[in-house]
Amino acid sequence: MGTHDGPGLRMVVFLQGCKLRCVYCHNPDTWDTHTGQEMTVDALFEKAIHLKPYFGKRGGVTVSGGEPLLQSEGLIPFFKKLKAAGIHTNVDTNGRVLNHFTEELLDTYTDLVMLDIKHMTETGYQEITGLPHKETTFRFAAHREASGKPMWLRYVLIPGLTDTPELLHRLGSYFETYKTIERLELLPYHTLGVHKWEALGKSYPLAGQREHTKQEIEQARSLLEPYFKEVKVH
């Protein structure tokens, strides 16, 4: 259960497998598509029903990862059951997958999408994720916008890498006209996931990277505030 992955109190399902290799990833153990614990839709659904009394007015189920939309096809029956049981559904995604399964999942069964905006430039995007084509994320955002259903954006603030005023203004002005974006969440960079890299025997690309001061975070927040309905720092 968590309170930081979507509205209210939520059951968070971490799905295994991601193609991105984000330098600050705090769950690098979820990259591999061949490991992880297999669970049936029924078992997951049963667990959600067990926890439902805690969801309150706004909580529900979040699928995160890894990149959950790699398993869009499998998520459809899960979300379908959740919706039938009156449970709020949320997908936390990097927006790189958009096939007809994804579209069905998002358009029909997903109450909220939380979309990670990695970077506003192609080089920055590649530097962070190790993959090209930042525009896939924007196509994804446009698709959600067209569907008219709610979306939150998430943006990781890294000193020197994503936090320059120029980049932040670009982020703001790009999405300023979107009607479905309810909130921008700023995630200040932190080192809490470093131990997982070490446990996996991987060297941590951002070793030595400093964290933001409170004041810097506040500056970024107030710079972005005019562009969005709500800007929230996690």
Binding site: L9, L51, P53, Y54, F55, R58, G59
Partner: peptide
């Protein structure tokens, strides 16, 4: 912090926990 990232959320989530429990 684990109840939520701000006071409004924390209050609301504690209500959820009590209702659920």
């Amino acid at each position: 912090q684990s109840l939520g990232s701000d006071r409004v959320e924390q209050n609301e989530n504690l209500v959820g926990i009590l209702d659920g429990y």
